[in-house]
Design a protein around this nucleic acid. Structure first.
Lengths: 122, 122, 122, 122
DNA sequence: GTGGTCTAGACCACC
DNA sequence: GTGGTCTAGACCACG
């Protein structure tokens, strides 16, 4: 459970937490059934409010990536490989769709964007 | 100065205005020296607050796309084609570099990302 | 926007609010595009915390029943009649599925339950 | 005393235990006077806390389904068939009456509700 | 004015 | 110990 918070980021803290945990799940870094550390533990370690962590956990729940059992804890959902693949692609697509208008505004053609990706992806 | 505002959009209004004007400038739709309509005029036509338009104009100023002369108006900056080209590529590259880590943590290979761009760029 | 809160209820306040608004939407009592009263207004009137109302609004958003636009307000989503019908049936089915085990535990057969409904539905 | 606990269930464990035992009693699976295994025995077998089992036993006691004799054990109450039948119907009716308003506010007609029950009762 | 985020601190049910 | 709910109060971005 490596989570890094950048206070300098524009993104809300709970989203930073959400994204990093979600990434680890869809990448298979966290196995199905794995019990996430308690919101209180995470809150203490990251030095944020309990509610902030809870917001992140709730987003994961909404995505169907985890199942929260009151009194027990929060467990990584058992997703089939195809589910995982879908989740990955879906998240990537969603992100890209939000970014594309920016490049279009700049006047980049599809070809130019492809070349840019080709060049910058290390 | 065609600007369309979608209240249903998630994007803040001032950003919608900014992006559309910026797009017209970098794409050559608005020539250097062109005097943008006054903030009040735009605000009236779009039926939004003056402050909202001002935010957009400020963003353009920050990007060096326009120069505001208090009491005279807001003029499209004179950028040589190469300047424009450089500015465009530089900003696109900068943006992409910030985004790439996201796709990498999702486990997307360069090839997968290229295909995604290919598919999503309408 | 008639909302009644029963402190005697076992249900959390935010769920009571959510259910009542959701009902009004799926029943067509609130038209698409209608702007819900602000969370602060509702909170004041119901004498509950702003956050409690916000939780209810978030649930509605998750169900796709409303769209929240920061700085503008929370608007009833435009759902087609079939969407509405689906939403209604889905909500009813979900509720019933949670209740059925109770009657089964009591040993009621399907026939007995049907007769009970027949008799009690005024 | 067959009790199965699903940790994946949303229901609290003590309720799962309660429902299964209650079901066996009202259905005649456990005869009047039968001495339930001790709390500690059940707790050990199900690998849950003693307190959890105690909660379930208390709920049974509240329902009048068992009588606990401190120091002796917990015995299934002697209910005549008609008593059982009355208890069953009464509890089912009470429950249903509380639920009906929910379906009505959703706009379900009696017919639709009957069909829903018909369809969902497995 | 609107909603979005975050905090600290409280009480509850469940295990 | 766990998560669930609720409160009061704060600051921010947007209009």
């Amino acid at each position: 459970m490596d989570i890094v918070i950048l206070n300098s980021s524009e993104k809300p803290i709970y989203e930073q937490i959400y994204e990093q945990v979600a990434s680890q799940i869809v990448n298979g870094g966290l196995e199905a059934g794995f019990c996430l550390p308690s919101i209180r533990t995470v809150a203490r370690e990251l030095r944020v409010s309990v509610i902030t962590v809870k917001s992140a956990w709730e987003k994961l729940e909404n995505d169907g990536l985890v199942h929260t059992r009151p009194g027990k804890g929060c467990f990584v959902a058992s997703l089939t490989p195809s589910h995982l693949e879908n989740a990955r692609t879906e998240r990537a697509t969603e992100r890209l769709r939000k970014e594309l208008p920016y490049y279009k505004t700049l006047g980049l053609t599809k070809q130019e964007l492809l070349e840019l990706v080709e060049r910058e992806y290390d």
